[in-house]
Design a binder for these strands. Structure first.
Length: 492
RNA sequence: CGGGGUGUAGCGCAGUCCGGUUAGCGUACCUGGUUUGGGACCAGGGGGUCGCAGGUUCGAAUCCUGCCACCCCGACCA
């Protein structure tokens, strides 16, 4: 099988698929639109999950689990919500199969029809708010700060490994509060948790912002988001946090008695990130040789490859040194593996670990050992250096940190070089076609104009940045007055 | 659902237009040997209902009809 990765300049779509498949992260599955996450890809997801879960707990949240199935009637209780999700729901209608009386296979038993159909959750707001109703009576019951790690199903027409699969893994936080301010604060706090995670761990700079009404979550008052930029100039929504107001509380009749003894509807938030983060990481950092993992999340941060020599005692010495480095790194909590497989040649191993994106490769040969050095190769820059064996664990530890920072800086420079102002329609469309990235432009604030711009250019408003400066201008499409620029982009 | 494309060995493909030995190539796999500082080499070997179902023909991967699956581009979306 060819291990060559399609060049980015040829076809980004193929390049991306190659990275996922040949990098060993995931496979297509027998079920259309669903993927198999392979052990290497899942190890990455586990690392992401662990860090986020820790942060959620540090910010006062606890984990729980709600059912996969949602009665159909629940979904329709919140008007905007059902509107947003109805078109992509998988529905369970029967609970039994039987042998086909007309021969051959097995059929759905028509006698086993469910009285009420069940929806496979596309998100859990409805089932959770139905539950919260029974949990909340008094102001003393608030806030409720619950998160769940789960899978959800959205029957998308077109799918893409990690970026948009019919089933995906995610976490969804669902909180209930006594006041509007407290809920807004929660939504903003969680957005910041996501943003910091993206920047510090994924090495992915993001823009914190708020969605325009068109892009808002179905059922939310405000949707906060982090938007990242991929190497092909398209934007990717990497996480969202919603202020739901009292919409779900009203739909599910969730009231609490406040300190003054009056009944009030509860204020809500929800927030989530998904396995899409892995797609973001791939598209933002990889190159034509394969994946590039940020050290902080890489399933393995260092691979040590001792050469295999004709002389057994030489091989033994090389392996011993490899194991010594392994132990020293392990002691520092660094994720490391030794590849002393004698059946594969070094060149093959080098290419393989580059494909998988291991941040650092340490190679030990007889020549090196005699000189008291090892060869250390960085995946991100592909620079190789001979470094002293003495104290190598410290050198490597520092290098990992350097790689993490360099990857972030590189992505940041790219992102910042791809935020461009456009002051009229010609500039706008030209930038979209020729440069890509985020385009900062005035918009008259109406959903109609946003729709029109999308129709004409395929670009959407990614967000209104949180720290956006006010500035008088004219809408690039209609010429109507505007008091701030917003960020447009073509997006995944 | 519209437009385009592809189904032949685990993977990647040629062969199909113009029907004709035993269906081929690369890679992967197995055995033996030599190798090992950037995807090794030599020799031998195993593996196929040519997507499915019909039809035409002395003869079908190839022609005809119908069906199915998947990929890419759009609409939808985290």
């Amino acid at each position: 099988m060819s291990k060559e990765i399609t060049s980015r300049s040829e076809d980004y779509s193929q390049w991306y698929n190659d990275l996922v498949l040949k990098g060993g992260l995931a496979d297509y599955s027998a079920v259309r639109g669903c993927m198999v996450i392979k052990p290497y890809g899942f190890a990455l997801w586990e690392n992401i999950r662990d860090v986020l879960d820790r942060r959620f707990k540090e910010t006062g949240h606890v984990n729980a689990y709600f059912p996969l199935f949602i009665p159909k009637s629940f979904l329709s209780k919140e008007a905007a919500h059902v509107e947003g999700f109805a078109k992509e729901c998988a529905v369970v209608t029967h609970y039994r199969l039987k042998n086909d009386p007309d021969g051959g296979g097995i059929i759905v038993d028509p006698d086993a029809k469910l009285e009420e159909e069940l929806i496979v959750r596309p998100t859990s707001e409805t089932i959770i708010w139905n539950t919260y109703k029974t949990w909340i009576q008094s102001w003393r019951d608030l806030p409720i700060l619950v998160n769940q790690w789960a899978n959800v199903v959205r029957w998308e027409m077109r799918t893409r490994l990690f970026l948009r699969t019919a089933e995906f893994l995610w976490q969804e936080g669902h909180t209930a509060h006594g006041t509007s301010q407290e809920a807004i604060q929660e939504a903003e706090t969680m957005l910041e948790v996501y943003a910091q995670f993206a920047e510090e761990w994924l090495a992915l700079p993001v823009i914190r912002g708020i969605k325009s009404p068109n892009e808002r979550f179905a059922g939310a008052i405000d949707t906060y988001c982090i938007e990242a930029l991929m190497q092909d100039g398209k934007a990717l929504q990497a996480g969202t946090s919603h202020f739901l107001g009292q919409n779900f509380a009203k739909a599910f009749d969730v009231k609490f008695t406040n300190k003054e003894g009056r009944d009030e509807y509860v204020w809500a938030t929800s927030w989530g990130v998904s396995t899409r983060l892995i797609g973001a990481l791939i598209m933002a950092h990889s190159d034509d040789q394969g994946l590039i993992m940020p050290p902080k999340l890489a399933p393995f941060q260092v691979v040590i490859i001792p050469f295999i020599s004709k002389k057994q005692e030489e091989t033994d010495a090389l392996k011993n040194t490899a194991n010594e480095i392994f132990s020293a790194l392990k002691a520092k909590g660094i994720r490391v593996k030794v590849d002393d497989d004698e059946t594969k040649r070094p060149g093959f191993k080098f290419a393989e670990y580059e494909l998988k994106g291991y941040p650092l490769r340490v190679v030990i040969g007889p020549r090196d050992l005699a000189n008291g050095v090892v060869e250390v190769a960085r995946r991100d820059t592909k620079v190789k250096n001979l470094l002293p064996l003495d104290g190598i664990e410290n050198t490597l530890e520092n290098l990992l940190e350097e790689i993490q920072n360099d990857m972030y800086q590189k992505a940041l420079t790219f992102r910042d070089n791809h935020i461009t102002e456009a002051n009229n329609w010609e500039e706008f469309t030209q930038l979209l076609d020729e440069k890509g990235g985020f385009i900062s432009a005035h918009w008259d604030g109406t959903p109609e104009t946003e729709d029109k711009i999308k129709e004409l250019s395929k670009a959407t408003i990614r967000c209104i940045p949180l720290d956006n400066p006010l500035e008088d201008g004219k809408c690039i499409l209609t010429g109507e007055p505007s008091n701030q620029r917003v960020l447009f982009a073509r997006a995944y």
